[in-house]
Design a protein around this nucleic acid. Structure first.
Lengths: 137, 137
DNA sequence: TTACGACCTGGAGTCAGCTCAAGGTCAAGG
DNA sequence: CCTTGACCTTGAGCTGACTCCAGGTCGTAA
């Protein structure tokens, strides 16, 4: 059973333009066509799209997702490669979390000072004075 | 005391192109020129640039920083506006933190499964099966 | 037959935040 | 006088992930 681009757009929530875009950049390799040249998506395509959507929700970029899809396509257990990618992504996210956490704390501090009354504006002054530290980057 | 664009680039770590860019988009309003037309940065410019850099490290976009700078420029305590901006940013960051945390947990789970031996690849399969949840977004 | 809606293509535009390239000017040093 | 190096301007290019547009085609229905 195959579906038109419109039907797939409905099912996935991805606009037709995005579906064509995914195909163009090779995430979806050549989708089958009907005699009139319109795209017909089969179950494998749908499954691939679902995969893309889930991986994207886990903060993988389209480039990384392409790598994962290649692993998925290759026969045999891809295991270690996928692990490597995931470990890298986890490390990245841990770093982001740490940075974000620290910044959040600093900003919260500034805001609390600000609410504490007194003169001036600790937020503005904080950025002027430099008591806000730089990230590890 | 004023400095050339090269000197300011040294002091701030921002490349000359970026300094000219900041001026172009109005973060730095017209920088003074010498008789030959070259930019001369004064202490106020430097302080402004430091402000920009610190706010940027706190995840404010250049657009938001422009708002903060306008507040800073206006006489009188800007307080409540800066508070509002900061509260919004804090809320945004809290949301990002929550999302990132959840994703990190899910990915870690997948990776642990993966290291546990057995058949197949839980990472790949996780994205296929859909046990990874969607963000609140 | 004609209209309509869904689809097709290629290519351009969007956002942020730079970054670079080409071609011109200017001041100081040898 | 000539070269070098820092600077100037305008305008284009980059990344990622779309998003939109114009103009053309296809299939079905009235």
């Amino acid at each position: 059973m195959t579906r038109s681009i419109g039907a797939i757009a409905q099912q996935t929530g991805l606009p037709p333009d995005t579906l064509r875009y995914y195909e163009k950049i090779g995430l979806l390799r050549k989708v089958a066509r009907d005699p009139g040249g319109r795209r017909r998506y089969d179950d494998a395509d749908l499954s691939r799209l679902r995969f893309i959507q889930r991986a994207q929700r886990c903060n993988f970029s389209l480039g990384e997702i392409r790598e994962l899809l290649e692993l998925r396509d290759r026969p045999g257990p891809p295991r270690s490669e996928a692990q490597r990618l995931t470990e890298r992504k986890l490390a990245e996210m841990a770093q982001q979390l740490a940075d974000l956490n620290r910044l959040h704390g600093e900003l919260q501090l500034l805001l609390n000072l600000c609410r504490g009354g007194e003169e001036g504006c600790p937020i503005i002054e904080g950025f002027e004075a430099g008591d806000v530290e730089r990230p590890a980057r």
